[in-house]
Design a protein around this nucleic acid. Structure first.
Lengths: 133, 133
DNA sequence: TTTCTGTTATACTCGTAATATAACAGAGTT
DNA sequence: AACTCTGTTATATTACGAGTATAACAGAAA
């Protein structure tokens, strides 16, 4: 799996990392049980600091997307992804609201809005079967 | 229009402000041509600093949602909301992707995902006709 | 013992958020 | 002309988070 870090972006590096790894899990590029690179390896590979990678891994661990085996490293949660519970739906709702507001303000039609939402969802299902991390 | 600032939130105050004003415009609570409170008045009303409000207004101005009349204050853009152009759709897409990824990762169905997206959009249309700011 | 793993601690730089004053320029009112 | 409102600009300060840099620790495997 190819990970790209944009140092010019205003979204923090550790967020870019967690997002891309979550995407990898969602698309199936990262299989359950698969081991992620060690914090030191990935950090030196991306040219960033060990702690930045560690922060991303910790978030993924707290979110239930990976398990941490002390010496085997971080592995993708095998069997039992964290469910989309009420708390998650509420967070989703809270994040969607301002986006929808701006879309309405700009006169976007509901059809177009839903088309973009559907596209974002289906693109993850689409690109199944990938390479190695 | 009632504006609520959460000082505990991790989203900056000026972002909370711009979001809520955009929502007000989207719902129609804030009518085109309507004047917003002066930066000083709103700041003292919310118990925050003048510059924080000013930053929010500047973002709204740069986004094309309000016009600034030097002494009349900031007024909601009358006639000609900024269109949902390609740049906006790309930004929307970029923001939707990580949210969709987490939803897929958590096993949310596409139906549920779209239902939440539709709900976020329609809630803005729903609460039309409001009070004064 | 050596080497890998995550983990923890400390310290530093840098940029942004937020605040606090202060002053300026333009337009309206008195 | 004086006053008062508006946004705007400038400067300084505090606080916090992001990111980096070292260093060290504990457990497991070779």
């Amino acid at each position: 799996m190819i990970i790209r870090i944009d140092l010019e972006s205003d979204t923090p590096i550790y967020n870019q990392l967690t997002n891309q790894i979550m995407e990898g899990i969602a698309t199936g590029e990262l299989k359950p049980g698969q081991a992620l690179p060690s914090v030191r390896a990935l950090a030196s590979d991306l040219g960033i600091n060990l702690h930045t990678v560690n922060k991303a891994y910790s978030i993924l661990k707290d979110s239930g997307f990976v398990q941490i085996h002390r010496q085997k490293g971080a592995v993708v949660q095998a069997g039992g992804m964290p469910p989309a519970d009420l708390a998650f739906e509420e967070r989703l709702e809270r994040e969607l609201r301002p986006m929808a507001a701006e879309a309405v303000g700009r006169g976007m039609t509901e059809e177009r809005w839903l088309a973009l939402c559907r596209q974002a969802f289906e693109q993850l299902h689409a690109r199944r079967e990938g390479g190695t991390i």
